[in-house]
Write a protein that binds this DNA or RNA. Structure first.
Length: 947
DNA sequence: TCTCTGCGTAGAGGA
């Protein structure tokens, strides 16, 4: 029997050796694996020829897979060898980007520098991007002039930030685009059978046949652990557009490698279970548009920018071996050592960065080093965070595995996808995008409106798949066919995408963007910040403050002190804001004080005031979520401050804050000017880590909800400013971290507040909860220091609401805090009996006159949230995590668990702190009293609630 | 094995 592949964990590797075979001398290396699909008997895999190069980087413990192996039985044992048509894949679960393979081929150092340093804002990049967009438009049959005009307009902000003019860029783009168009016409001519003439191929009727061309194809390979996006595919063959100059006759090697990688993945799609190498297209095309642009201007002969090259098994396997080298190097996810370089450094444009990074990290490098190494504690810090971020990257890679799960059980368990959708239509939108519609089954998934998803015709890996944005996940009335079971709700699903397809499945698109930005923030903070700025981060110096006498808020001492501290801070200030303490109001007041203040803290301390337009701080306002950023803007607006620019995506920014949103398209000077002249810039931390805001700097960064941010996440904002203010509550939810690594789960806010308690102020008066509701949280989480701000706050009750009478409530719900044990039992992550009871409880409050809008239901699991929502369509029902930051008059909490509390969700007590402190006037806990009593803290909570 | 938001995706070029 032959198998299409073997896969397993490496348990032993022999030294490579050279042997004589019937074909002459050959290298071989024997690797022993413990296969994961067999009984666990060790199996020998022999690597032949060039595959032995990979043997040098393979370590025991790594996983390898061999496709189409030569198989033979030797002394009763199955043996496999990699040579001929077989392919070796090292660490198949580590997904390597095609552009990373390209970088590695240039120089392995380049691969690491890209990862650490991120992209800079450079004209060739912006121009290249615009040309690529125009290329895509031409393939979609659009008119050249319109395409250029629109795409240059779309890049307005980037062009403006580089100080360029639209006309100038349009001219440059036209040179490239004309070359493409000329070549496209030429191609159409030679391939159109006889009849066509040059005249027939006028601009007007030129339109590449749909079947022949496919632009911008997303490719994800399970088999090769590789992903990327091809510029275009023509008759199944990859076409890559290069806007750089290449004066050589031959295509550049790294460009060939890039196109070959796409060819390999196209081969995998074509091959089915067969050999991807054999099925791969045999030709690749590289379009060097600058050559043609130069030729045209010089009126020299060759107008064709295209260089074709043949793709053979040698090149395809080289791509796989390079990919393997990267995956193996990433196995221990260590900081690059500096020894990776194997290219010529002499002409390298990254030489300066390369030497600087090596110098800072105290490494040797072939290119040499500059600068002094950062202190040991910083090296340790860098290393531990680098490793932790890479562990997060691994977690993202594991999410990709969901894309190729195929068994019905796996698919049913997959809450990262919406499957079995029924396509109901598509519409072409302005600008060439498509709106795709389908009806869904109402299944529970992580996918939400606004998310970026992979939309497909049913199979996201081998089928037709496109990145898409979820526009609507609306519920409709149940379809007639669903009326029997009563709980399946058909929903209309609307997405937008670049290309049309039959919408049958949506998958969460696992993006490494966050990990990339965290890595960049770490690099910027440790390797680029000045030693003085880093002193306070590494505990070498206490943060300094100037005394500020001015009163900013006159009815709340702690709030006033917080603003004074922030205004007087030379390095940083910390504001600890427990639930309902007016954190957002204080923050807005603080931002106004910073903006109005004079330039230096010492000047501020002496009370001098200069013209706010040129004297005040330039402030960066940031938070982890778009919602938190928009809440801050709302508070600023409420206080009459509107000199704000909000940077972010259209789908991320709340409707009423769109008026502040920075337009990224339009007149370059206007776009850039708006950003550059803004006194207050607001954006999520992820956006702060992006290239747009990297062009900006600020006097003060103010970061809200800082307790929810990882340390590098916070640094993405703080590295853009001279000093920073962190506002948050480390007794509420910590950052969400997917990997086991604990390094990222403590926020910078928490670390600094522990290390420098004097640099922080705790807001201790809360304006939200009745006395009895806040009592438990105050005692358990805030040392009893959290108090109601006024007697009115303390004494508030439901009867205060118009038309509400608690006398109409059942006995057990009349107290401000109640506990209900409905019986029932946990089913998966739901508890239907509890959901029923919660629906009854909510109905009681409704009968007593409480509007639906004043009631909120909180559950630990999404599945239970869905269960309750079905019964209460008019009431806000959500997870604890998503309820953080808001509040309701009445809160009902579902605990789901029965018997024991063994789910990890109950381990972090901060989650219950958040849930309990959402209520203003009434709080009902619904759960299994016995299960809750098994834990000390939950036990005390039940005691308190039973009152 | 539970919580989950971000980001125009990835790639755009320089010598």
């Amino acid at each position: 029997m032959t198998v299409d592949h073997v896969r397993g964990v490496v348990v032993d590797i022999e030294e490579p050796k050279t042997v004589n075979t019937q074909y002459g001398e050959s290298d071989l290396c024997e690797v022993t694996i413990r296969p994961d699909r067999r009984s666990g008997e060790p199996t020998t895999v022999t690597l032949w020829g060039k595959w032995t190069e990979n043997a040098e980087v393979i370590e025991t413990g790594m996983e390898i897979a061999v496709y189409n192996p030569d198989e033979r039985e030797y002394q009763g044992e199955q043996q496999y060898s990699v040579g001929g048509d077989a392919t070796l894949v090292v660490q198949p679960d580590f997904l390597v980007d095609v552009t990373d393979i390209r970088a590695w081929v240039q120089c392995p150092r380049m691969y690491y520098l890209r990862k650490l340093d991120g992209a800079d804002h450079a004209y060739p990049l912006v121009k290249g991007t615009v040309v690529h967009e125009v290329f895509g438009d031409l393939l979609r049959g659009r008119d050249l002039d319109t395409a250029i005009e629109e795409q240059v307009d779309a890049a307005g902000l980037d062009i403006g930030l580089l100080g360029r003019e639209a006309d100038e860029v349009a001219g440059d783009v036209r040179d490239h685009a004309s070359a493409i168009q000329g070549w496209l016409r030429q191609g159409t001519l030679t391939e159109t059978d006889g009849a066509a003439t040059a005249a027939d191929n006028s601009e007007r009727d030129f339109s590449p046949a749909e079947s022949e061309w496919r632009s911008e194809m997303t490719l994800i390979s399970e088999r090769f652990g590789m992903k990327g996006r091809a510029d275009a595919v023509r008759r199944g063959m990859p076409v890559e557009l290069k806007t750089g100059k290449n004066t050589k006759r031959e295509p550049r090697f790294q460009d060939k490698i890039q196109a070959t990688a796409y060819a390999l993945m196209l081969g995998e799609r074509a091959a089915g279970a067969g050999s991807a190498v054999e099925a791969a297209p045999d030709t690749g095309t590289l379009l060097y548009t600058k050559n043609a642009a130069v030729d045209r201007n010089e009126e020299s002969g060759d107008l064709s920018p295209a260089k074709e090259f043949s793709i053979g098994s040698g090149l395809l396997n080289y791509v796989v071996r390079t990919r393997n080298a990267i995956a193996a190097m990433e196995y221990d996810s260590g900081v690059p050592t500096g020894y990776e370089a194997n290219a010529k450094c002499e002409y390298c444009f990254e030489q300066d960065t390369c030497m600087a990074v090596s110098g800072r990290l105290d490494q040797e490098s072939k290119a040499g080093t500059v600068g002094r190494a950062v202190p040991d504690e910083e090296l340790d810090y860098f290393e531990s965070f680098y490793t932790a971020i890479e562990a997060e990257r691994r977690a993202v890679h594991r999410e990709y595995a969901k894309l190729w799960e195929q068994t019905p059980e796996e698919r049913a368990d997959n809450d990262r996808a919406l499957i079995d959708l029924e396509p109901i239509g598509r519409t072409e939108l302005d600008g060439g995008r498509w709106e795709l519609r389908a009806t869904g089954t109402g299944a529970v998934s992580k996918i939400r409106e606004g998310n970026l998803v992979l939309a497909s015709d049913g199979d996201p890996v081998t089928g037709n798949a496109e990145l898409a944005r979820v526009e609507r996940l609306g519920n409709e009335a149940p379809r007639a066919s669903d009326s029997g079971n009563g709980n399946a709700v058909a929903e209309e699903i609307v997405v937008t995408a670049d290309e049309p397809l039959d919408l049958r499945r949506l998958d969460v698109y696992p993006s490494e963007l966050t990990t990339d930005r965290l890595q960049n923030a770490l690099h910027d903070a440790v390797l680029l910040q000045s030693p003085e700025q880093k002193d306070v981060l590494f505990g070498r110096r206490e943060p300094e403050f100037n005394a500020v006498e001015e009163t900013f808020i006159d009815n709340n001492e702690a709030q006033n002190e917080a603003v004074q501290l922030a205004v007087g801070a030379e390095d940083f200030a910390l504001v600890h804001g427990p639930p309902g303490t007016g954190k957002t109001y204080t923050l807005a007041r603080m931002v106004r004080a910073l903006v109005e203040g004079s330039k230096t803290p010492s000047e501020r301390a002496s009370g001098e005031r200069s013209d706010p337009r040129d004297g005040g701080d330039r402030v960066l306002l940031s938070a982890f979520t778009n919602r938190a950023v928009d809440n801050l803007l709302e508070a600023l607006e409420d206080q009459g401050y509107t000199d704000i620019v909000r940077v972010g995506t259209e789908s991320g920014v709340r409707e009423d804050m769109q008026k502040y949103r920075l337009e990224t398209s339009g007149d370059p000077g206007e776009c850039a000017g708006r950003l550059q002249n803004a006194q207050v810039v607001a954006a999520t931390t992820a956006t702060c880590g992006g290239s747009t805001l990297q062009t900006q700097d600020f006097d003060t960064a103010v970061v809200d909800e800082a307790g929810q941010l990882t340390e590098p996440g916070t640094l993405a904002a703080t590295t853009l400013a001279d000093r920073f203010v962190l506002v948050g509550d480390h007794q509420q939810l910590p950052p969400v971290v997917q990997s086991e690594d604990e390094t990222l789960s403590t926020s910078l806010f928490e670390r600094l507040i522990d290390a420098h308690p004097d640099a922080g102020v705790m807001l201790d008066r809360q304006y939200r909860m009745a006395q009895h509701i806040q009592a438990f949280a105050s005692r358990e989480f805030y040392d009893g220091q959290l108090r109601p701000a006024t007697g009115e706050v303390a004494a508030q009750r439901l009867d205060d609401l118009d038309g509400v009478s608690t006398s109409r409530l059942p006995e057990g719900l009349r107290d401000r805090v109640a506990f209900v044990d409905p019986g029932g039992s946990q089913v998966g992550n739901t508890n239907p009996t509890e959901a029923d009871r919660i629906a009854e409880i909510v109905a009681s409050y409704r009968s007593a006159g409480v509007p639906a809008d004043d009631i909120g239901v909180i559950a630990p699991y999404r599945a239970q949230v869905a269960e309750i929502s079905k019964r209460l369509p008019d009431v806000t029902v959500d997870t604890v995590d998503r309820f953080q930051g808001s509040s309701k008059e009445v809160i009902v909490i579902s605990f789901v668990a029965t018997g024991t509390l063994d789910s990890p969700i109950f381990e972090d007590y901060r989650r219950i702190n958040v849930a309990l402190t959402r209520a203003k006037k009434a709080l009902v806990l619904v759960g299994d009293g016995d299960a809750l009593a098994t834990d000390e803290v939950y036990g005390r909570m039940v005691e308190w609630a039973r009152g």
